[in-house]
Simulated scan of single mutants.
Amino acid sequence: MTTALVVDDSHFMRTIISDILEDGGVDVVDTAANGKQAVKKVESIDPDVVTMDVEMPEMNGIEAVEAITDRHPTPILMLSALTTEGADATLEAMEKGAVDAFAKPGGTISTELSGHSEELVATVERVAAADPEAGNDVEQTAPTTAPTTDAEYVDHPTLLVGASTGGPNVVESILGALPREADFRVLVVQHMPDQFTSRFAKRLDQTSEYDIKEADDGDRISGGEGLVARGDYHMQVSGYSNGRLRVRLDQSERRHSVRPAIDVTMESAAERVTDPLVAVVLTGMGTDGAEGIRAVKGAGGATFAQDEATSAVFGIPDRAIETGCVDDVLPADRLTEAITDSIRRSS
């Protein structure tokens, strides 16, 4: 049975979260009212997973994540209020080592959380299966890319990136090292609560040389631009002409129990994009992305997967590798170089 430590400064929320997890088969071995208590209890109890509030007295969630990651690496799920500040803080916590995030509906204190019981339990179980030290390796290892001096690239390439649990830092690492002169059109599908994708897109925009935004229905992008799939919406490539790519967003049926789905974006790109395609699947649980990789490979594109050693959860890359359609399996810090090498013009 999965063991959990519940951390929240509200006694009411600690009770609600604990009851939900216990009813779902998770053993809540203890609770903590602030980050300082959480750090001590993680070291003494060694739970499988920690649910962590963001705003707390004495030591907040971000500081607690950093301390736990440094002293006693443990999978951590951030529970954040549905606010811009909460989303920013959660992304910062994930940069410090948290594995994933779950949005508290209705704010910091709300019984509405009970209406999302199954989703919360499933997320806790998923995070508990993660390797937090693999995620730390990604954060601490500087991304590398091939020297771009004198590099010549094919015209109008498109990069498709799919990720889930543990993915935000890896996505940021890859795009942060992506040379602007490669002139990719970039589409990112990160399984993430819909309240967080706009902030994630802004973060990628700030840390990369590409102009990146959260996707809107009907958006068009050219070289040097990118879109992040909006939370709770599939992102399909609906048109492609003269190096310009158009997307359509919809809330059609979930695939692999997720929306957005990596497969939806990759399969539609493989069907409509006539110029070079590169697809990469990163850390995460489940099978989403495997059929997308198969489709891209069938369309003549280059395909890559993150290796097990640097993946917080190896499910998504592993399922893609099993298709036999992945060109290379690489650690996170070598993926950007492989991506750019795949679109270099032959001498």
Rank of each mutant, 00 (worst) to 15 (best):
D275R: 03
L79S: 00
T148N: 09
R248E: 14
D183F: 00
I174G: 01
P143E: 00
D263F: 00
D27W: 06
D8G: 06
I17E: 00
S198F: 10
A279I: 05
T145Y: 01
E181W: 07
T145E: 03
G315M: 03
R259Y: 01
K96N: 13
G86A: 07
G324V: 13
I221M: 02
D70Q: 14
K40A: 11
V127G: 02
A64E: 11
D137G: 14
M94E: 02
H116C: 09
R71W: 09
D137F: 14
T31W: 05
N169H: 08
E214A: 12
I16M: 04
L82S: 15
H156N: 15
G224A: 07
I76R: 02
E85W: 00
V326K: 01
M94F: 08
G243P: 11
G97I: 14
R230D: 04
T144W: 13
V273I: 04
A305W: 06
R71N: 15
D333M: 12
A295K: 15
D27S: 13
L178W: 05
G300S: 05
T274Q: 01
S342M: 02
V29E: 04
T303H: 06
E58R: 15
A309R: 00
I321C: 08
P193M: 00
R259H: 00
M52L: 10
L175R: 08
E66H: 13
L245S: 14
T323N: 03
A312I: 04
D48Q: 06
I212R: 08
T145W: 00
T340V: 08
P276I: 06
E118M: 11
S347D: 14
D30G: 12
I76D: 04
A142D: 10
T336F: 01
V296N: 04
S311P: 03
V138W: 09
T283M: 08
G284I: 03
T340C: 01
I293P: 15
T90W: 00
M285C: 06
E43R: 10
D341K: 00
D194R: 09
L91C: 08
P47W: 04
G97L: 14
A93L: 05
V138T: 08
T31N: 07
T111S: 15
V329S: 01
Y233Q: 13
A146T: 02
E271R: 11
V280T: 10
P193W: 04
A229K: 14
D131H: 07
F196A: 01
G226P: 08
P168H: 03
F196L: 02
G243M: 08
